[in-house]
Simulated scan of single mutants.
Amino acid sequence: MHLLDNTLSFPHPEQTHETGILALGGDLSPERLILAYQNGIFPWYSDDEPLLWWSPDPRMVLFHDELKVSKSMRKLFRDQKFKVTFNQDFESVIRTCAEIPRQGQDGTWITEEMIQSYLKLHQMGFAQSVEVYENEKLVAGLYGINLKEKAVFCGESMFTKISNASKYGFISLIEKLKEEGVQLIDCQIYTAHLASLGAKEISREAFLSHLGL
């Protein structure tokens, strides 16, 4: 595990510890965050921990042509069950992701420092959000980093307040990214929810190759 200083650099992801942690320390400046994502690295830590940088092996990803849409979800789209917007209320999405209770978690890893950093990335056009509404109320959302030059979208977090709303937003995002030429969605770590949508685990080496590394 490597200790970062003020130098704007990271060790190669191949040097990641078996836990998935590559380094600790540094800062959450926009420049460092962009460099991290471009190299298959992301921050994940709690308030009571140092700033931790991860590059897990295996890596959970979704290829846009492997997206699975169930019959029940197709019906929701036919019925236009929800209204979906993009990049219209990034701050509400990231703050709700931070605040919403999650099963098996005592708190959040989305600290106020992280929120402020990603708001800057949103202003720069890197961090993007999806908002899902029902009756004009925000019921689900997600955000991530769009590495357009690498055709990769790095998903960060999502929330839902009612059944199927986050899936609706996620599927809508995949369709939009597909039109923009994005081929791979980085989901970071396995969850059954993502697997049900077609995401799968690949090796870190394979993931890095998609980033041109």
Rank of each mutant, 00 (worst) to 15 (best):
L142Y: 00
I185D: 01
F10S: 06
K137I: 07
P50R: 12
R32H: 10
I185N: 00
F126Q: 07
L24T: 14
H193V: 05
R78F: 08
T85E: 10
S70M: 04
E180M: 11
G25E: 10
F63Q: 08
K178L: 00
I110F: 04
K161I: 12
S172M: 09
N164S: 15
L119F: 05
V182H: 03
R204W: 12
Y143K: 04
G141E: 03
V132T: 06
P101A: 10
I115C: 08
E156I: 02
Y45H: 14
K81I: 07
E113K: 13
E91D: 13
F126A: 11
S70H: 04
I115N: 01
Y133Q: 04
F42G: 02
Y190Q: 14
Q128F: 12
F86H: 06
D27P: 08
P56R: 10
F82Y: 13
I41P: 02
F153N: 02
A195W: 00
F63S: 07
E113V: 05
L4C: 10
L67I: 09
H12E: 09
Q80F: 07
G198V: 00
S46D: 14
K150M: 04
V61G: 02
I202D: 00
T96D: 09
G104A: 12
L147N: 02
I189G: 01
N164E: 15
Y168D: 05
T108C: 08
H193P: 00
S209T: 14
H64Q: 14
N135G: 00
A36P: 00
P56T: 13
L138R: 03
A199N: 07
G107F: 06
T111W: 04
G25A: 11
L194R: 00
K167F: 09
I41F: 02
E136F: 09
E14L: 10
H64T: 15
A151V: 05
L208M: 13
L173Q: 00
H64E: 11
S92H: 11
R102M: 08
I41M: 07
L119E: 08
Q105E: 14
Y133R: 03
K71W: 11
G20Q: 11
P30D: 10
N39G: 05
P43M: 13
A151R: 09
L3F: 15
Y190L: 13
E205A: 15
C97P: 01
R74G: 09
T108E: 06
H210V: 03
I162V: 15
N135Q: 15
K176D: 08
K68T: 10
Q188F: 07
E49V: 09
L76R: 13
S46V: 05
K71P: 13
N87H: 08
V69H: 00
K81Y: 10
G107S: 13
K120V: 10
F90T: 02
L33K: 01
K148N: 13
M114T: 08
F207R: 06
Y168Q: 04
F86L: 05
Y37I: 11
R32C: 02
E49W: 12
S92G: 07
V152N: 02
L138S: 08
A127M: 10
C187V: 06
V139A: 00
A151W: 01
Q123F: 10
F86M: 07
